[in-house]
Simulated assay, not measured.
Amino acid sequence: MTILIHDADRHVIETPDIWQDYVDTAEIKGFEYNLTYDTQHKAEQRALRLGQSARVVLPPTLKLGEYPLLNCWNEDIQIESAKVFHKSIDKRKRAAAPNTMLQDMDDTHIHSASLFPNVASYIINHQSISHQASIAYARGYNTWLYEYCSHNPVRLKGVGLISRHDPSSMISQLEAIEKMGWTSITMRPEIIAGHHLGSSAYNEFWQACEEKGISIAFHGGSNLQAPTAGTERYTSRFALHACSHFHEMQLAFLSLLDAGVLERHPKLKLGFFEAGSSWLLSWLWRLDNICYTEFPGLINNRIKMRPSEYFKRQCWVTIEMDEPCLAQVIKTIGHDRLLFGTDFPHPDHLHFDYTNLETQNADIKPAELVDILQHNPKQFFGY
């Protein structure tokens, strides 16, 4: 079977020169992007102090002005990341430019892809950055990505990046993205600048997205310098990574549901990315059968259907091909609500095998697989 695979979650790599070439330095004063590079000499010193396993040159240390870009990114994780990231260095180099990105897509039989940010998401959502600098970085990233995708707009699909630091600016940001011809945006699921996704500060923004037919892809990640599920109790990479993607998607859906956003905007298209889909089963069951039925008089003005009905009506979720429970997920929300993304070029997702898709998971029927890989993305992204 020939499937024109659309990669619904593929990442670009932003090289440091982007922030020099596409961002106004006056607007980011005090929050300049800078890197400190490690050396072999420092690696030798670490080996003397910590043992031979620490004899590695670390990835650059990233900062915005005086502020570390990443949260809980200590020496231990830097050492371990240096050991892991070398596995994906060639892939990350390919993701930095459109021609090599397309070469990799050809090699893995990816026909087209929706492109998401890498470091830019951590920059514009940093809890210490000014709203002016956050917006400037988002604007610069979108301008660079537009030029990147212009290399082959049929295959390279930009997903616009929105800064949430100043809610009053979000509609104008959306309008600028719309003028680029893009039909989707990406936002973090966390509390950003004091606002969760259900905040009334975003009411007009959600309405604008619905009216313009712009889809929203919620995409999180670990080690953000902002409140993220797990940061109130953990500092280890293991624990933070376990919580950040999975629980933030649950909380994002709940925030929008509880605030009545889904009830007020039935045509708003929402996607929940890079957390798999198995989180949905227990979450929707609990919301439907325990929370929804407990005190109906308290919610009947903003949640008029079972939560699962809202999800089936206007939400999509990305899957992992080898995750359990896919048959039950399909039974619960329908296969037409599933998307697949490779998460290229991140080192924890380098196992995509296009030659074996039909047998990787017996829970997905061949016709359903065609929809997930080819047709569903068109419905969500509006291509």
Rank of each mutant, 00 (worst) to 15 (best):
residue 128 S to T: 03
residue 180 M to H: 08
residue 144 W to C: 11
residue 175 E to I: 11
residue 184 S to Q: 08
residue 161 L to Q: 07
residue 91 K to V: 07
residue 142 N to W: 11
residue 102 L to N: 05
residue 187 M to I: 15
residue 118 N to R: 13
residue 128 S to M: 06
residue 89 I to H: 10
residue 108 T to K: 15
residue 180 M to P: 03
residue 177 I to F: 07
residue 149 C to G: 01
residue 103 Q to P: 05
residue 121 S to K: 12
residue 190 E to C: 12
residue 103 Q to M: 10
residue 133 A to C: 00
residue 115 L to G: 00
residue 108 T to W: 11
residue 179 K to A: 10
residue 190 E to R: 01
residue 165 H to G: 08
residue 190 E to W: 09
residue 99 N to Y: 04
residue 161 L to K: 07
residue 125 N to R: 02
residue 158 G to D: 00
residue 189 P to L: 00
residue 151 H to P: 07
residue 183 T to N: 14
residue 115 L to V: 08
residue 87 K to V: 10
residue 143 T to G: 02
residue 84 V to M: 14
residue 188 R to A: 15
residue 139 R to L: 05
residue 136 A to F: 02
residue 182 W to V: 04
residue 99 N to W: 06
residue 116 F to R: 05
residue 98 P to D: 05
residue 107 D to E: 15
residue 176 A to C: 10
residue 132 Q to L: 14
residue 125 N to M: 09
residue 145 L to M: 14
residue 166 D to I: 01
residue 123 I to L: 13
residue 169 S to P: 03
residue 100 T to H: 09
residue 157 K to A: 01
residue 130 S to Y: 13
residue 159 V to G: 05
residue 132 Q to F: 04
residue 120 A to Y: 11
residue 186 T to E: 11
residue 156 L to I: 06
residue 110 I to E: 08
residue 125 N to T: 11
residue 95 A to K: 10
residue 86 H to P: 02
residue 186 T to P: 06
residue 153 P to R: 13
residue 123 I to M: 11
residue 180 M to V: 04
